[in-house]
Amino acid sequence: MTVETPRPPSPRTPSPPGPAPQMALPLRSDEERMRFCDAYFSSVGAPVVYEAPFYREYQLPRDVDKELTDRPYYWMWVEKTQQDVPPTVLRLAFAESALERENERLRQQALRDAERQGLTDLQRRFFRPPAAEWINLGCFRLDKIFQSLDRRGQFACVAPRHLPPDAVRVPWLMLNLLVSFRCDLTQQEFWSLGVCLVNGQVVERFLPALDRLDMVPLDTPAKACLSGTLSLDQAWQRASLHVERRLSERPHDWADAATRRWLGEREQVRTYYRSILPDVPEPERALVAQEQARRERELEARMRPRIDVELRQVALVVLAERPASAQSPAGPSPDALK
């Protein structure tokens, strides 16, 4: 069979000259996942109560507990009866070896504690020690953390810690988009755009450019720096025009191939139903026509190429305006970001 495998649209992200580096996906290693979880739990105020190599125990505040443990009825009961329940402790192992090691430790420890209180034979036989969870890609807990983040990490409002006092402050709107190229398969890209609210300039890869900066909350309310600038709606318009232009500039062979496939199969379906129709008894024809319509609809839903652009995160970022001559790497200059 001649395969029309959709090719990834190239270049990967707009702009940079030469082949775009294929970015490695985050959270693919044990180490990375552990740092990620540490950062998450510290940001939501869940202290580490025990620590070992590739292993942590986090004590959850109640609001985080509700988000990470799937037990709505428990919480209903706790709140209705106004119970004072001890906080949940999550025991997370980030490597398989750590999981085995800590499970053994937990078992020994729990058994010692239980023996001290005296165990009957039956209790000993059915003794179940607490166990650690292994955190890996696709596990329940990590998915829950992702869901929690989708709620908690949607918005932000920041400025660099060291803004020169005399610098002119320029507000930028950061829009993080998930772009999905989609036919019967998908390929996705993460686009972080910065729209300058003073002059409407759009800058790409905005979030990575901020990585070097130590960002802190604003020292004056955001409102103050938003007077006389573009409205958020206007900024959004600029950004979406930019996205549409960027998308139209690049080749979409994958979409051409998908369209050809889709139309080919649709023709096949039409030919098929045309050919069987003569043998279908009159009263059933309407049904067969319905079936054909359904097939064509499903075919289109599955195969017709489209691009979905989803706004996932919004942030206000106040940066210092840089004189054209300055070359210090203190902030994202529009040129450097291109």
């Binding site: 985050p26 990490g153 932000a156 390929q187 604003l218």
Partner: peptide, 24 residues
């Protein structure tokens, strides 16, 4: 009105989480 530190940290973690789930 002035944002907060935790929100910014979570914002960056969320960006990582979104990319971790992408179909590259």
């Amino acid at each position: 009105p002035v944002g907060n530190q935790a929100a910014w940290n979570l914002f960056r973690l969320t960006a990582t989480a979104i990319q971790a789930r992408m179909a590259p």
